[in-house]
């Protein structure tokens, strides 16, 4: 037994890892059953920040990521848009990454156009698109949007977008929501928007790699943070708790459908994070197990050597 583990071929570890991720995906994918989520303080802060704004507030959503990090960030982007739309906020989408507008378009197509048919483009939401210049963009639009954004992505002039009439700069926003996969992203928003203008409120969702570098900013400059897929899942849980009846699949009479336990049947696109937490949990447990086994071997080894 000890020898087996000491000389363990790492391919066994690879196989375990594969199973730990693949099996939960298939089971969850086939049955739709997921693990419960207990939202942490930081995620609750994100939820409250959006929830406590009065309906009709202006929210700037900057989607600064690309397809490579979609797995971690798309669930957050989806939920942010859903939450803002359900709460009735005005949404101003923009992007600091060249492919960001595609991410915004995906969200608009899949969420707003499908589930919020009465929201009107230009009045309830607008896609301002991408501007090159990384943090330079933030530095400019913090005082004047029109200097860079003379039009939206469709080419509509700024002055012709109704919801932009009383907006001069980012400072007119009630909340900044940022989904970030790296540079330029949350760090730059904090440095160039929130730090010089402390009245601004900001929440963010970021990848796991970035999270450690953002913690120093909480809570003075960053008022809430969704860290990696776990943050996304917790946030989904909170939004579902609050808006489950709206979100659920509907029957012919537009009544929300429920399962046998009386829980709402939530469409798959709103539970991506929660679903992904299944493999995540199992894989983390595997990692912890591996660390423990590795150390047990190490101590046994040391004792045997000591005996010699």
């Amino acid at each position: 037994m000890y020898e087996f583990f000491r000389d363990l071929d790492r391919r066994w570890i690879f196989l375990m890892m594969f199973l730990c991720v693949a099996v939960p995906i298939i089971i969850i994918g086939a049955t739709g059953k997921t693990f419960p989520e207990e939202p942490t303080q930081l995620v609750r802060a994100v939820f409250d920040e959006i929830e406590n704004l009065p309906s009709g507030s202006k929210v700037l959503l900057s989607y600064d990521y690309d397809p490579a990090s979609e797995g971690e960030l798309a669930p957050m982007a989806t939920m942010f848009a859903y939450h803002c739309a359900a709460k009735g906020h005005k949404m101003y989408f923009m992007a600091l990454w060249p492919v960001g507008p595609q991410m915004v378009d995906d969200t608009i197509e899949n969420i707003i156009k499908k589930d919020f048919k009465d929201l009107k483009y230009g009045e309830d939401y607008v896609n301002l698109g991408y501007k090159s210049g990384y943090e330079g963009v933030i530095k400019v639009i913090i005082t004047d949007f029109t200097e860079l954004y003379s039009t939206d992505t469709r080419g509509t002039p700024w002055s012709a977008i109704p919801m932009c009439h009383d907006v001069n700069s980012v400072q007119d926003m009630d909340l900044i929501v940022n989904v970030s996969a790296g540079y330029a992203g949350t760090k730059e928003w904090v440095q160039y928007a929130v730090t010089p203008y402390p009245k601004l409120r900001m929440v963010a969702g970021c990848t796991g790699v970035q999270a450690p570098l953002l913690y120093p900013y909480i809570p003075q400059q960053l008022h809430g943070l969704l860290g990696a897929i776990k943050g996304a899942a917790e946030y989904e849980a909170l939004v579902i708790e609050a808006y489950g009846d709206k979100m659920a699949r509907k029957d012919a009479g537009d009544n929300p459908l429920t399962d046998d336990n009386g829980d709402y049947l939530i469409p798959g696109k709103y539970t991506e994070g929660i679903r992904r937490m299944g493999p995540q949990l199992v894989a983390h447990l595997l990692m912890i197990l591996l660390i423990i086994v590795g150390n047990v071997i190490y101590f046994v080894e040391r004792r045997r050597e000591g005996r010699r």
Binding site: L8, R10, I13, F14, M16, M17, F18, V21, A283, L286, M287, L290, I291, V293, G294, N295, Y298, F299
Partner: peptide, 16 residues
């Protein structure tokens, strides 16, 4: 990386 992370955790994280 998911695999390599696992094998690194097993091999390298020893309480020396």
């Amino acid at each position: 990386l998911a695999f390599y992370v696992a094998s690194a955790a097993f091999r390298a994280f020893r309480a020396k």
